[in-house]
């Protein structure tokens, strides 16, 4: 049976059903529904909910819970996500699993609370210090929010690495019918890394794994190369014959898909690549494609994803950007831009 839920609520409920039993976080718009939902839901399943004094403390509590073998997570938005970076770096360096959601709102500094995609660089290229990456999933629907959240917990443990759900105010505030995953159990005593006191055995410590490794440089490189090779996720729509391939994630991908369908109805050969994993970036999606142009569409004024598109396609065709920011573009804006680019491309040939 489907439930009508907000993206934020689907994230929270899916986490519970994935066996997450620890949440610590701090209120911030447009993410606060996660706290409100879990403050009620966690006690029902015997889990821990803490409204922490700050995001710095919240992610550190998650670090402790993850070290104890629990499935643990936090969530925030822009300014608060900046504060989470400290702990994320520590958790990555200790190779512990956790899930972090950033519900993107627009802008630097305090910014504003309307939808945006301006935390791409921070999420994908690490807001924190050091040599690490976090696996980043970008849902484009409430259903996908639930599905990716479940996947995130499994992937975090498989790779022993934080996983980021990079949502935005639209996907998180939006309500839609969602088929929730079945309730799963997680045994916190099972993971090899779970601290519970040394008992009669040998003690365990969680700190940067580099301290106790002879060949750390090669090790960490190989770890992320494996992720880049095996963990790419994306959706391709009608790219095979496309003259122009749109590239967009999250809310922008929904607008682009609508624009693509509308353009197709008018006989324009338009395709769409929707990256689902932003790290690793789905470079394989671009294999064998030879359109006249790529158009990267995102709600950031500086074009944060556009250069990843350029790298992924090897610049086999010109890469254009359609940028938002304080302004939310519509489907017809994207169609107009497609027309401009194709017109220019035809003119040039």
């Amino acid at each position: 049976m489907k439930e009508l839920m907000k993206g934020n609520e689907a994230f929270a409920e899916a986490a519970i059903r994935a066996g997450c039993r620890f949440f610590a976080g701090y209120p911030i718009t447009p993410q606060s529904e996660v706290l409100e939902y879990l403050s009620r839901r966690m006690p029902e399943v015997g889990g821990v909910f803490i409204q922490s004094e700050s995001e710095l403390a919240g992610i550190s509590m998650v670090y402790g819970a993850a070290a104890a073998g629990f499935r643990a997570m936090t969530s925030s938005s822009g300014p608060g996500y900046s504060l989470l970076q400290e702990g994320i770096s520590y958790i990555a360096s200790a190779e512990l699993p956790c899930v972090v959601m950033d519900v993107m709102r627009y802008g630097s500094g305090l910014g504003d609370i309307f939808t945006g995609q301006s935390d791409y660089w921070q999420a994908v290229y690490n807001g924190g210090h050091g040599d690490y990456r976090t696996i980043v999933y970008a849902p484009s629907s409430v259903q996908e929010m639930a599905d990716l959240t479940v996947m995130a917990f499994g992937k975090a443990e498989e790779r022993r690495n934080p996983v980021t759900i990079l949502s935005d105010a639209s996907i998180s505030q939006m309500m839609a019918p969602v088929e929730l995953p079945a309730m799963a159990c997680h045994d916190p005593d099972a993971p090899a890394w779970a601290l519970k006191g040394k008992g009669n055995g040998h003690f365990k410590r969680h700190t940067s794994v580099m301290y106790y490794m002879n060949e750390y440089d090669g090790y960490v490189r190989a770890k992320y190369e494996k992720i880049e090779k095996e963990d790419q996720r994306w959706e391709s729509l009608e790219t095979e014959d496309a003259e122009i391939v749109l590239v967009a994630y999250g809310i922008s991908s929904r607008i682009c898909e609508e624009a693509m369908r509308s353009a197709r109805a008018q006989g324009r050969r338009v395709g769409l690549i929707r990256p689902i994993s932003l790290y690793p970036y789905p470079v394989n999606a671009f294999d064998g494609l030879a359109p006249r142009a790529f158009l990267s569409v995102e709600m950031s004024a500086l074009g944060q994803m556009a250069r990843d598109v350029a790298l992924a396609c090897g610049m086999r065709a010109p890469v254009y950007s359609m940028l938002g920011g304080t302004r939310l573009y519509s489907c017809s804006d994207v169609e107009a831009r497609i027309g401009e680019i194709l017109g220019a491309a035809h003119g040039a040939f």
Binding site: L56, Y63, R205
Partner: peptide, 13 residues
């Protein structure tokens, strides 16, 4: 058994 906390956050960990 121990966890190396971020600077200042040992109580939170």
């Amino acid at each position: 058994d121990c966890v190396q906390a971020p600077h200042g956050r040992a109580a939170a960990v």
